[in-house]
Design a protein around this nucleic acid. Structure first.
Length: 376
RNA sequence: GGGGGCGCGCCGGAGUUGGAGAGCCGGGCCAGACUGUAAAUCUGGUGACUCUGUCUGAAUAGGUUCGAAUCCUAUCGCCCCCA
C-alpha cells in the first residue's frame, strides 16, 4: 500500500490523497460500500464499477467463513475471483460481530467463540485465525481482530477491553508478518483504535496503535449509538495522534453529514451499511436532503427520484414508481434505492475531494452539511 | 321456485350459543427507527370527539327482555343444497 497526499485543506484537517493497492488506486476521501457476504446487497458488480464508481468494497470475515466457507473461497482463488469484483477489497475481521452478536459469543484472552447465527455451531476466532481467514479471502486490506465495545460502556470494561484489543493486535501483527499472501498480491494489516467514549483511553489507544507503525490506521468502536458530538470529539482527538502521513479509516460511519464532518477532522476512509440498508427500507439520501420514499406524499409525484443525481436510474425513474416498488416489496425497488444511495455517497466523496483540491472545502462543507440533513 | 346457512373495524380469519367489547391474530394503510449488516428488518398507530376522558358501534328497521352481536319478525345482501 502506498499513500500519497495531493492536497491538505488549510482550514481543516481534510486532505485529498491516493491509496495504491495491487487491485487499483483509491482516491480519498472515499466511502467503501459494505458487501458483508461477498455482495453489496442488491447491487451488481458492473453497477458498482460503472454507475456507483466504487473504488473499494468490504467483505466480512465472520460471515464469509460461515458461508460459503474458506475452502470454497480458496478453491475459487480468493474473493475477487469468486465474486468478480476486480478492485480492492477490505475485510472486517469479525470484531464488529463481537459487538453485534454479543449475545451469542463468549470472549476470553485467547479469542472469541461465536455460536453461529445460522446453525448454532460453535467457532472460535483468535487473532491468528482472523488473520488466516482474511489471508484466504484474499482481502487487500485486512483488519486486526478487535473487540468493538457497546455504548454506553463502563469505564472499567472499556479499559480492559482496550487492553485486550491491544494484546490481540500484537498477536495479529506477529502472525501476519510471519506469513505471506496466498494469491500473489500485497495484503496490508490495519490496526484499530478503541477506548469507547473516554478521552484518556482513546488517547492511550491511539498512541499504542500509532506505535505499531502499520501502513494505515483505523478508528473503531464509534457510531454504536453515542451522540454524534461524542463521535466527533473522539475522532478529532484520535486524528490528532495518528500519523498524518498514513490513511485514517473511521469504521462504520456514517450519515452524509457524519462523513463530511469527519473528513474535516482528518478521516480518509469510511464504510457504513446505512446507504444500502436504509435504501431497502425506503430512505433516500440526496444532495437536497433525506426523503422517506414510502411516505404517502410521493404517491403521485412523477418527478425524477433525484434530478441532480449522478445516477441515470435516479433521473430516469419517478418517485411515484419507486414508492410503488417499495410498497410492493418488489426487488427492483430495493435495487434502485440502493443504487441511488451509493451513487450519492460516492458522488459526495468525489465532491469533497474536488473541493479540498480547489481549496474551498470548509465553506462547501458547511453549506452541504445543512442541505443533506434536511427532511424532504 | 323450495330448503338451509351466514352478515361486527379498510380486508381476511378467530371468537362470541341472553350479561365485560373500540376489542384477539394476520394483511393492508399511516408514521418512525436503522451507522465496521442475524435487518427486503424492527417499533408504534389505524371508529368519532370538545381526547388522562366521553360518545357511537355486531347488515337495515322493528320487537321480546332488567339486559340483545346472541332470541323473534320483516327487509336487504352473500353462500350452499334441491328443482
Amino acid at each position: 500500500m502506498k499513500f500519497s497526499i495531493q492536497q491538505s485543506d488549510s482550514a481543516s484537517q481534510a486532505r485529498a490523497a491516493t491509496i495504491e493497492t495491487d487491485h487499483g488506486t483509491i482516491q480519498t476521501p472515499i466511502f467503501m460500500p459494505v458487501g458483508t457476504a461477498g455482495t453489496v446487497k442488491g447491487i451488481h458488480q458492473h453497477e458498482l464499477h460503472d454507475t456507483i464508481k466504487a473504488q473499494i468494497i468490504l467483505g466480512n470475515t465472520y460471515h464469509l467463513y460461515l458461508r460459503p466457507g474458506i475452502d470454497v473461497l480458496e478453491k475459487a482463488g480468493g474473493l475477487h475471483r469468486f465474486n468478480g469484483w476486480e478492485g480492492p477489497i477490505l475485510t472486517d475481521s469479525g470484531g464488529y460481530q463481537v459487538y453485534s452478536l454479543s449475545h451469542r459469543r463468549k470472549i476470553n484472552e485467547e479469542g472469541v467463540t461465536f455460536q453461529s447465527h445460522i446453525d448454532g455451531s460453535r467457532h472460535t476466532f483468535t487473532p491468528e485465525k482472523a488473520i488466516d481467514i482474511q489471508r484466504s479471502i484474499g482481502a487487500d486490506i485486512i483488519m486486526a481482530f478487535d473487540e468493538c465495545t457497546p455504548y454506553p460502556c463502563e469505564y472499567g470494561y472499556a479499559k480492559k477491553s482496550m487492553a485486550l484489543t491491544h494484546r490481540w493486535l500484537d498477536r495479529c501483527c506477529k502472525h501476519f508478518d510471519a506469513g505471506t499472501g496466498r494469491y500473489g498480491y500485497q495484503q496490508t494489516l490495519v490496526p484499530i483504535v478503541q477506548g469507547s467514549t473516554y478521552r484518556d483511553l482513546r488517547k492511550t489507544s491511539a498512541e499504542v496503535i500509532a506505535s505499531f507503525d502499520r501502513p494505515a490506521n483505523a478508528i473503531g468502536g464509534l457510531s454504536v449509538g453515542e451522540p454524534a458530538e461524542e463521535m466527533y470529539e473522539m475522532t478529532e482527538l484520535v486524528c490528532g495522534i495518528l500519523p498524518k502521513d498514513k490513511p485514517r479509516y473511521l469504521m462504520g460511519v456514517g450519515t452524509p453529514a457524519n462523513l463530511l464532518e469527519c473528513i474535516a477532522l482528518g478521516i480518509d476512509m469510511f464504510d457504513c451499511v446505512l446507504p444500502t440498508r436504509n435504501a431497502r427500507h425506503g430512505l433516500l439520501y440526496t444532495s437536497e436532503g433525506i426523503l422517506n420514499m414510502k411516505n404517502a406524499k410521493w404517491k403521485d409525484d412523477f418527478s425524477p427520484i433525484d434530478e441532480n443525481s449522478s445516477c441515470h436510474t435516479s433521473r430516469f425513474h419517478t418517485k411515484a414508481y419507486l414508492r410503488h416498488l417499495l410498497h410492493c416489496k418488489e426487488l427492483l425497488g430495493a435495487q434502485i434505492a440502493s443504487l441511488h444511495n451509493l451513487s450519492f455517497f460516492l458522488w459526495l466523496m468525489g465532491e469533497a475531494r474536488q473541493h479540498i483540491l480547489a481549496g474551498d472545502f470548509s465553506s462547501w462543507k458547511k453549506e452541504m452539511v445543512e442541505k443533506v440533513q434536511r427532511r424532504l
